[in-house]
Design a protein around this nucleic acid. Structure first.
Length: 453
RNA sequence: UCCAGAGUAGCUCAAUGGUAGAGCACGCGGCUGUUAACCGUGCGGUUGUAGGUUCAAGUCCUACCUCUGGAGCCA
């Protein structure tokens, strides 16, 4: 394989006879020679190529316009000018792929909205190169975090027949034509099927056998929500631990967030510098905040007292039995505690059936991790492991135990306390990069009315 | 889905109801170990779509489409 530019730019000494391949960012012509900026996406920087008049292949120079692809052989030498320590002095140059004057990406910056319309070309821009290198490294960091702790990666199904999981509207998966509800038994799976909204219930079955598991895969919500934080298809990470209570769950969640922030700071340093300069000046400060400040834990009831006693006027009233609003969450983490915060023991009435009922019968062992700038990044709970209590919870929410027979079975055979949480990968990327729109941290966003690519 | 804002050249944006402009991109010429190069010059338009008001609409009115921000739902 030819050398990637990131390796060439890390050279410790001059090198003869190297080959670089990439896309032309810009060309500057001087008397008797030309400068080419060649970028291959392997790192943030481009390689400056110097092409003398008469170099073999230099007759293609007029075609080496912004966006064209090229191959350059030459010698890597120390650059005599400022701006780069190494440059490639070409001994042979060739055009690989032409890019005409209608190439949409220019040398100057583009708006994020415009780049979304050319999502097939935006990987060639500085910002999206940085975002997707970051996404790749952090995905790796996610796996490393769990693998180092003996978690087993489970590929939970994408297609599910579990309706009403309570996590939002679902996409129907069907091979039927016409009226889908006329005869569901004739459908491919013999009953209505959907794209998964969560792998949690399936992950619980594996935790109750392999002890510690996690999922990391695509998740689908058919909600007609049009915001900078929602996508119809996104990637979710859901660890699940047997023999674990809420305290253990919170500890893992806090450790996980810190580990990702640390990975961002240490393994994506170039990209972080770019995000800090051009995207969000506060991003590094937020990372340091999460890495260095100890997490604060506060029960929901106490959080309400803090909010009520704050003397602050909130747009939404603080009321027992209601979910905390984004503005409430941000007050707690940014102003009151000035630290990342884990709120736990939420009212039973606002949480789903699978969360474990506390002894007070009023609250459940649920927790949300809040960070500055974003609010909630993780939601999780200890699961209800007692058979009678789970059946009671299902009935209370109008669900039929028969529809959850295999989930209920876990409580009949060797049931154990267990707990887990869920975290949206794109939401975390937004927090770590400072990028403000979820459509810009996922390669090809699926949102209502939009699935072009 | 609700509320608000926006839609003018390839891109980013100007334009009191009265002759649609600039910068960048692109073409041509010049200059230069250049660095989002620079200087000159040229090209570039069904003003989102469809109606309406008016002597006259980019501008005012109505509907629709698309995008953005916020809300709800949530991850």
């Amino acid at each position: 394989m030819h050398a990637l530019i990131r390796h060439l730019l890390r050279a410790g000494s001059p090198q003869g006879a190297v080959t670089a391949r990439g896309w032309v960012r810009t060309r500057r012509d001087a008397r008797g020679f030309s400068f080419l900026e060649l970028n291959d996406g392997s790192c943030f920087a481009s390689l400056q190529v110097v092409v003398d008049e008469g170099t073999p292949g230099s007759e293609c120079l007029p075609d080496l316009t912004t966006g064209a692809s090229a191959e350059v052989e030459g010698e890597l030498v120390a650059s005599p000018a400022k701006g780069q320590s190494w440059e490639l002095r070409a001994t042979r140059i060739a055009l690989i792929g032409h890019a005409g004057p209608d190439y949409p990406l220019q040398k100057k910056g583009h708006s994020l909205e415009f780049l979304r319309e050319i999502a097939h070309l935006r990987p060639r821009s500085n910002l999206f190169g940085a975002v997707f290198r970051t996404r790749s490294r952090l995905a790796h960091a996610v796996h490393r975090f769990f693998q180092e702790r003996d978690f087993v990666h489970v590929h939970t199904p994408i297609i599910t027949t579990s309706d009403c999981e309570g996590a939002g509207e679902m996409f129907r998966v069907t091979t039927l034509k016409g009226d889908l509800d006329a005869n569901p038994a004739a459908d491919f799976f013999g009953k209505p099927a959907y794209l998964t909204v969560s792998g949690q219930l399936e992950a619980e079955t594996f935790a109750c056998g392999l002890s510690r598991v996690y999922t990391f895969g695509p998740t689908f919500r058919a909600e007609d929500s049009n915001t900078s934080r929602h996508a119809a298809e996104f990637w979710m990470i859901e660890p699940e631990m047997a023999f674990c209570d809420l305290a253990g769950d919170m500890a893992l969640a806090e450790e996980f967030i810190k580990a990702l922030a640390l990975a961002m700071r240490e393994e994506c340093a170039d990209e972080l510098g770019f995000f800090e300069r051009f995207v969000d000046k506060e991003v590094r400060r937020r990372l340091d905040f999460v890495i260095e400040r100890p997490f604060q834990r506060v029960p929901y009831a106490e959080a309400l007292q803090i909010l009520l006693g704050s003397g602050r006027e909130f747009a939404y009233p603080v009321e027992h039995g209601r979910n905390l609003q984004s503005e409430h969450e941000r007050y707690l983490t940014e102003e009151h505690f000035k630290a990342p915060v884990t709120v736990f023991d939420y009212p039973r009435a606002i949480k789903p059936f699978y969360m474990r009922v506390n002894d007070d019968q009023e609250t459940v062992a649920a927790m949300d991790v809040l960070v500055p700038g974003i609010g909630e990044v993780i939601g999780g709970s200890q699961r209800e492991e007692r058979l009678d209590q789970l059946e009671q919870n299902l009935a209370r929410q109008g669900l039929r135990p028969a529809d959850y027979w295999w989930y209920v079975d876990l409580r009949r055979f060797g049931s154990v306390p267990h707990a887990g949480f869920g975290l949206g990968f794109e939401r975390v990327l937004m927090f770590l990069t400072g990028v403000g729109n979820i459509r810009d941290v996922i390669p090809f966003a699926r949102t209502p009315g939009s699935a072009e690519f």
